[in-house]
């Protein structure tokens, strides 16, 4: 059985290999599927639903669904993009995302998706929930106002034994990301920097890090998120 299979994304036939996720297959063919909770080298979780695509009329997450031969996928449609925009808007009203005062502004993935979907104002009411900032750790500041519960830090930042530094604490709508106190003693400078970088928003900030990249030179100042994928075209 050949490993090369054919799928279509928005009517365009592309080739990929068996075992890949729809997200990976799209990316290697220069097609951008927006993601938030998904990050390279970390097992996909499919929790944010931004990457939802239609497969034969059914909504599936592109980051967790593997490609099948002959799959017909809808991705860049008005309906799907509006649903994705609605998810971004929900995240904006659910947390306290004060972009003008955030160290991560300009290189924030949530904000960049807001730009990409041209979010002028969320369609939902702001909740202004009470959230804490925790700054007890000497290396990392944790701002729960900005956290979107993607679990990227839990899944991606681990010690040499594979044990996570971060975990969910509390339940339901009160859930917060917690830095394990015993594990925190083992948090090296390098891991702390990785934790800040793996966070798609500004919820984990290295202490002492300020606004070090000037406006105009930040990651998403001039190029929309996903434009690097689209610019590469096929077979990157």
């Amino acid at each position: 059985m050949s490993n090369t299979i054919k799928i279509t994304i928005d009517g365009v036939a592309v080739e990929t290999t068996r075992g890949k996720t729809i997200f990976e297959a799209a990316r290697e063919n220069g097609i951008f599927i927006p993601t938030l909770c998904n990050v390279d080298n970390v097992k996909p979780k499919g929790s944010c639903r931004i990457c939802s695509v239609y497969i034969s009329g059914r909504l599936m997450t592109a980051c967790t669904t593997q490609v099948e031969d002959g799959m017909e996928i809808e991705n860049d449609t008005a309906k799907l993009n509006d649903m994705r925009k609605a998810i971004v808007e929900l995240l904006f009203v659910e947390g306290n995302h004060f972009c003008p005062g955030c160290e991560r502004s300009g290189s924030c993935e949530l904000q960049a998706l807001g730009y990409r979907f041209l979010m002028m104002v969320p369609r939902f009411s702001f909740l202004f929930q009470t959230r804490d900032i925790e700054a007890t750790n000497p290396k990392l500041m944790k701002d729960n106002n900005r956290c979107i519960m993607c679990k990227r830090c839990i899944r991606g930042i681990k010690d040499e034994d594979g044990k996570s530094f971060f975990a969910f604490a509390r339940r339901g709508h009160k859930v917060v990301i917690n830095l394990d106190r015993k594990q925190a003693a083992k948090l090296t400078d390098d891991l702390a920097r990785q934790a800040m970088e793996i966070c798609p928003v500004g919820a984990l900030i290295l202490k002492g890090k300020g606004f070090d990249v000037p406006i105009g030179r930040r990651k998403y100042d001039t190029k929309p998120i996903g434009s690097d994928v689209e610019a590469k075209g096929g077979n990157c």
Partner: peptide
């Protein structure tokens, strides 16, 4: 509505939460 403060309260709204 012009600007973040008109749209979402902006920096003054940091007292909200």
């Amino acid at each position: 509505s012009l600007g973040e403060c008109a749209i979402m309260g902006g920096l003054p709204a940091m007292r909200n939460n």
